[in-house]
Amino acid sequence: MGYDGLKKLEPMKEDNQLLVITHLSQLITLVIGFGSLIVPLILWLTQKDKVYQMDAHGKNIVNFQLSLIVYCIICVPLILFFGLGLLGFAVLGIVGVIFPIVNAIKASRGEAPSYPLSFNFIS
């Protein structure tokens, strides 16, 4: 009869489409030049308590994007060593496009994402 002030817990919904969009949102950098960390971070933070598996996928994406930033910083001084940094930037660019697509496909199938060489910043 009375309202006790507690919010009713809503069950988490399964939304593979949103997980796919979250993975593909990393590619926004190809269109506007930035946002590969910002957009997935916002999606993860706003949906992690509402969508089943969003927390795990979001953490993997953020860890991957932060790892790419660290690797890019490492590549800058490597440019002086026979241009190895330029090769590193090329490899990172390819990896930064391929793995979000692969993991978006995995997410659509309900599989767990896997981003290689990612540091575990957020666990």
Results as ranks from 00 to 15, higher is better:
residue 103 N to H: 07
residue 10 E to T: 03
residue 24 L to C: 01
residue 67 S to L: 06
residue 85 G to K: 10
residue 55 D to R: 11
residue 82 F to R: 14
residue 120 N to G: 02
residue 53 Q to M: 07
residue 64 F to G: 07
residue 117 L to D: 07
residue 49 D to T: 07
residue 25 S to L: 08
residue 78 L to Q: 15
residue 96 G to A: 11
residue 105 I to P: 00
residue 70 V to M: 02
residue 34 F to Y: 15
residue 9 L to T: 09
residue 2 G to C: 03
residue 107 A to C: 06
residue 95 V to K: 04
residue 75 C to K: 04
residue 43 L to P: 13
residue 37 L to V: 15
residue 116 P to N: 09
residue 62 V to L: 13
residue 69 I to D: 04
residue 47 Q to L: 13
residue 51 V to T: 04
residue 111 E to N: 08
residue 92 L to D: 03
residue 3 Y to A: 01
residue 30 L to M: 06
residue 33 G to A: 12
residue 39 V to L: 12
residue 78 L to H: 14
residue 36 S to Q: 15
residue 12 M to D: 01
residue 79 I to H: 08
residue 18 L to P: 03
residue 78 L to E: 11
residue 116 P to H: 09
residue 118 S to W: 12
residue 36 S to W: 15
residue 79 I to C: 08
residue 63 N to V: 04
residue 44 W to V: 10
residue 68 L to W: 00
residue 46 T to W: 14
residue 23 H to C: 15
residue 9 L to A: 15
residue 105 I to G: 02
residue 26 Q to V: 02
residue 117 L to G: 08
residue 4 D to K: 13
residue 6 L to A: 09
residue 101 I to W: 10
residue 108 S to I: 05
residue 92 L to R: 03
residue 100 P to A: 13
residue 1 M to H: 02
residue 11 P to C: 01
residue 97 V to N: 03
residue 114 S to R: 02
residue 111 E to S: 09
residue 84 L to E: 05
residue 107 A to M: 02
residue 10 E to N: 10
residue 82 F to C: 10
residue 59 K to E: 00
residue 16 N to E: 07
residue 82 F to S: 12
residue 107 A to E: 02
residue 43 L to T: 10
residue 14 E to T: 12
residue 70 V to K: 04
residue 12 M to T: 04
residue 14 E to C: 07
residue 54 M to Y: 07
residue 36 S to Y: 15
residue 115 Y to R: 13
residue 95 V to L: 09
residue 81 F to S: 07
residue 44 W to Y: 14
residue 7 K to D: 06
residue 41 L to F: 12
residue 86 L to A: 12
residue 107 A to D: 03
residue 103 N to W: 03
residue 52 Y to K: 15
residue 44 W to D: 14
residue 3 Y to H: 10
residue 22 T to V: 10
residue 8 K to S: 13
residue 64 F to Q: 04
residue 65 Q to L: 13
residue 43 L to R: 11
residue 101 I to K: 05
residue 114 S to K: 08
residue 71 Y to C: 08
